[in-house]
Amino acid sequence: MNHLDELEAEAIYIMREVAAECEKPVMLYSIGKDSSVMLHLALKAFWPEKPPFPFLHVNTTWKFHEMIEFRDRTAKELGLNMLEYINEDGVREGVNPFTYGASYTDIMKTQALKAALNKYGFTAAFGGGRRDEEKSRAKERVFSFRDVNQAWDPKNQRPEMWKLYNTRINQGESIRIFPLSNWTEKDIWQYIKRENIPIVSLYFAKERPVVERDGQLIMVDDDRMQLLPGEKVEMKKVRFRTLGCYPLTGGMESDAETLDEIVDETLQAVESERTSRIIDKDSGAGSMEKRKREGYF
């Protein structure tokens, strides 16, 4: 077995453990490339049965429209039970990424996720997080315990030995499971290529309307984009390494139009991927850890 085979078998083992032991699991589906890989692994893990759990997308209402189209087509073609959750209170109050800053992420993502899990009573949620993404993730367990407030306590994680995952919880507690913990960005791309997994078109370079803001190229995906004085919309050939809310996701100038070209570009990459997610830079070192303690995925 090569190292991709080993990672694949590990992820499948983890998913089966959850399906067998957890009372009410759900797979979080964020539409990005990691979600595409996770979905593909879930299809393999239980074949010829369908994945024995629903999928959940927490929609901030600020996702790229190409993402939403991709999500809907994926769910329809594969016959998946795809749930969507939107924090309607946040929408009513007009919470947006331009004027609400960090509290936007909290209200539309962190709080919305908590509310969604509570609404359906999910006791276990798969996430596509990888340990190579960020330093505090590097220390998170594969089965990551959340207390009744869905908070993560990094100083008091359950020890995780061998492949013996502890799925036991009390009423109100839950577990987040990261089957891709040991994958790197490079592994993800190589696997997408090897397995021929569809991903959102935004990953491929194309002429797109963008503005330059704080050194990032932000795509003008719809007319809600608020331009700052002096900003002007230009057409540039860009692609995205990670996908999120369009006003918070920086694109990169690129000519990589095919999967091969993307993989090649990634292998030579000099910027690690979270650079293009603006929320991580808010308060320097430790900002992701803070959000995770509060329940961010």
Partner: peptide, 30 residues
């Protein structure tokens, strides 16, 4: 014995770009 590591579709040519048909083709392959 079913081994997930070796899907029967691994010989199918790679998708090199995303099109509107990609999801449909994927579902058919699966």
């Amino acid at each position: 014995i079913l081994d997930a590591e070796k899907p029967s579709d691994c010989e199918i040519p790679q998708q090199s770009i995303y099109t509107m048909d990609s999801n449909h083709a994927y579902a058919e392959r699966i």
